Measured scan of single mutants.
Amino acid sequence: HMTFVALYDYVASGETDLSFKKGERLQIVNNTEGDWWLAHSLTTGRTGYIPSNYVAPSD
């Protein structure tokens, strides 16, 4: 899985979304859904959809 880092805080707007904090590391499970990607937080262990423009590839 690709690892990304959150650029901003995001508060989930629905049950399927994943809240995260700036700097949180996320594994992308599925990024074929356009602007919303299914991600797994390496910080909280939770999985949900995130806005793709809130994250950047982590080196």
Rank of each mutant, 00 (worst) to 15 (best):
D9G: 04
A56E: 11
L26P: 00
D35M: 13
F4Q: 03
L38N: 02
V11T: 14
L18T: 04
R46M: 15
S52K: 12
G23F: 05
S58W: 15
N31L: 12
G23A: 03
L26D: 00
T3M: 14
Y54F: 13
T44S: 14
L26E: 00
W37K: 04
P57N: 08
I50F: 03
G45N: 12
G14H: 11
H1T: 12
I50G: 00
L26M: 10
N53V: 09
A6G: 06
A6H: 00
Q27Y: 15
N31I: 10
K22E: 07
G34F: 09
M2F: 11
A39T: 03
D17G: 14
D59C: 08
R25T: 15
T44Y: 03
K21T: 12
L42W: 07
H40K: 14
T16Y: 14
Y49N: 05
D59V: 13
G23D: 05
R25C: 07
D59E: 14
A12K: 05
A12G: 13
A6D: 00
R46Y: 10
T32M: 13
D35N: 13
T44M: 03
G23Y: 05
Y54R: 06
E15S: 14
S19N: 05
Y49F: 14
D9I: 01
L7F: 03
F4L: 07
G48S: 01
T3E: 14
S41T: 02
G48P: 00
I28H: 01
T43E: 14
G48E: 01
D35T: 10
E15N: 11
G14L: 10
T47W: 12
L26V: 05
W36Q: 06
G14Y: 11
Y54N: 03
L7W: 03
V5F: 08
R25W: 14
S52I: 06
D17W: 08
L38V: 07
R46H: 10
V11F: 11
L42R: 04
Y49C: 07
T32I: 12
E24D: 12
G23C: 04
S41Y: 00
R46L: 14
V5T: 12
E33I: 10
S19A: 07
V11N: 11
L38D: 01
I50L: 04
V5S: 05
Y8A: 14
K21A: 11
K22I: 07
I28Q: 03
G14I: 10
R25E: 13
A6Q: 00
W37I: 07
S52F: 09
V29S: 07
H1V: 14
A6S: 05
E33D: 14
K22S: 08
L42E: 08
D35G: 11
I50N: 00
W36G: 03
Y8F: 13
H40L: 15
T32K: 12
W37P: 02
G48T: 01
V55I: 09
W36L: 08
K21V: 14
S52C: 07
N31V: 13
T43Y: 08
A6F: 00
R46E: 11
G23P: 00
T16V: 08
V5N: 04
A6C: 05
Y54V: 06
E24N: 02
P57E: 11
L26C: 01
S13V: 12
S58I: 15
G23T: 02
F20Q: 00
G45E: 05
P51V: 01
Y8N: 06
E15H: 11
V11Q: 13
T43D: 15
L7D: 02
T16H: 13
L7H: 03
G34Y: 08
P57R: 07
D9H: 04
F4Y: 15
G45V: 01
E24G: 01
Y49T: 05
L26H: 00
Y49S: 04
I28T: 03
L18Y: 04
A56R: 11
L42H: 07
E33S: 15
K22H: 05
D35A: 13
T3I: 15
A56C: 08
Q27M: 13
V29I: 14
A39Y: 01
T43P: 03
V29A: 08
M2Y: 12
V29Q: 08
T32R: 11
D35V: 11
F4D: 00
V5K: 05
D9M: 02
V11H: 11
E33N: 15
T47L: 08
M2I: 13
S58F: 14
D9R: 01
S19D: 07
E33A: 12
T3H: 14
L7K: 06
E15Y: 10
S52W: 09
Y8T: 07
K21Y: 08
L7M: 09
G34S: 13
L38H: 04
I28F: 03
A6I: 03
S58V: 14
L18H: 02
P57G: 07
A39F: 02
A6L: 04
L7R: 04
K22Q: 10
Y54E: 02
R25P: 08
H1N: 15
Q27C: 07
V55D: 02
E15F: 10
E15C: 06
V55G: 03
K21F: 09
M2N: 12
I28R: 06
W36N: 05
P51S: 03
L38E: 05
F4C: 07
F4H: 06
G23Q: 02
L26W: 03
S19L: 06
N53T: 12
S52N: 07
R46T: 07
S13R: 12
S41G: 01
A56K: 10
T43R: 09
V29W: 12
Y49V: 06
Y54K: 06
G14M: 11
L26R: 00
D35E: 12
E33R: 09
S58P: 10
W37R: 02
T16A: 09
N31K: 13
H40P: 00
V55A: 06
K21W: 06
N31Q: 14
R25V: 15
N31R: 13
S41E: 02
P57H: 11
L7S: 04
M2H: 12
L38Q: 05
G45I: 01
N31T: 14
Y54A: 14
P57T: 09
H40S: 10
Q27G: 05
W37T: 03
D17E: 15
P51L: 06
L7I: 09
S19H: 04
S52L: 04
N53H: 15
T16R: 14
A39L: 01
K21I: 09
T44R: 02
N30E: 10
H40I: 14
T44I: 02
D35H: 15
G48C: 01
